[in-house]
C-alpha cells in the first residue's frame, strides 16, 4: 500500500522531468531562432520532442501497472526554411536571400505555456499525494 502511494509520486515526477526536457528543447529552439549556420552547413532546424506512455506489467498480459511518461524521441521539423532578402548577410546566396531557421516564435511560446501548465499540474498531484500520505500516517492519532 505504501508502495502504491509513492508510485503516484513517481508517475508525476516522470511527468515533470519529461515536461522539463520539453521546456529545454523549446528554449534551444528559441535561442537558435536566428542561427543561419550549424555543423552540417544548413540553418538550424526546429526540434520537436515526442512523449510516450510507460506501462509496466507481465509480458503477454494486458499492462495495467502505470509507469508515467517518457521522452520517446527528438525529431526535426521538416518544414522549409524561411527565405529572407538580406544581401549583406555573410550566408546570403547569389540572389541575396538568406535561409533562416524554421522556428516560429509564436508556436514555441504556446508550447512553452502548455509545458509549464503540465509541469504545474504534475507538481499539484505530488502535493496532493503527499497530503494523502500524511493523513494515512496520522491514522489512530
Amino acid at each position: 500500500m505504501m508502495e502504491g502511494l509513492f508510485k503516484s509520486i513517481n508517475i508525476s515526477s516522470s511527468g515533470m522531468s519529461a515536461e522539463r526536457f520539453r521546456l529545454n528543447i523549446i528554449s534551444q529552439n528559441l535561442a537558435n531562432s536566428d542561427t543561419t549556420r550549424t555543423e552540417n552547413g544548413d540553418p538550424y532546424r526546429r526540434k520537436i520532442v515526442t512523449f510516450q506512455e510507460v506501462l509496466n506489467g507481465e509480458i503477454g498480459k494486458s499492462k495495467t501497472d502505470f509507469g508515467g511518461v517518457k521522452v520517446n524521441s527528438i525529431q526535426e521539423d521538416t518544414s522549409p526554411f524561411k527565405l529572407v532578402y538580406n544581401p549583406e548577410h555573410p550566408d546570403a546566396n547569389e540572389e541575396g536571400y538568406v535561409r533562416m531557421p524554421n522556428v516560429n516564435a509564436l508556436n514555441e511560446m504556446v508550447d512553452m505555456m502548455s509545458a509549464q501548465r503540465a509541469y504545474d499540474s504534475n507538481a499539484a498531484v505530488i502535493n496532493s499525494a503527499k497530503s494523502m500520505y500524511n493523513s494515512a500516517i496520522n491514522i489512530g492519532k
Binding site: S12, G15, F51, E53, V69
Partner: peptide
Amino acid sequence: AQNIANYNT
C-alpha cells in the same frame, strides 16, 4: 497521476 503525466503524449 498517469493521465496528468501524459497530458502532452
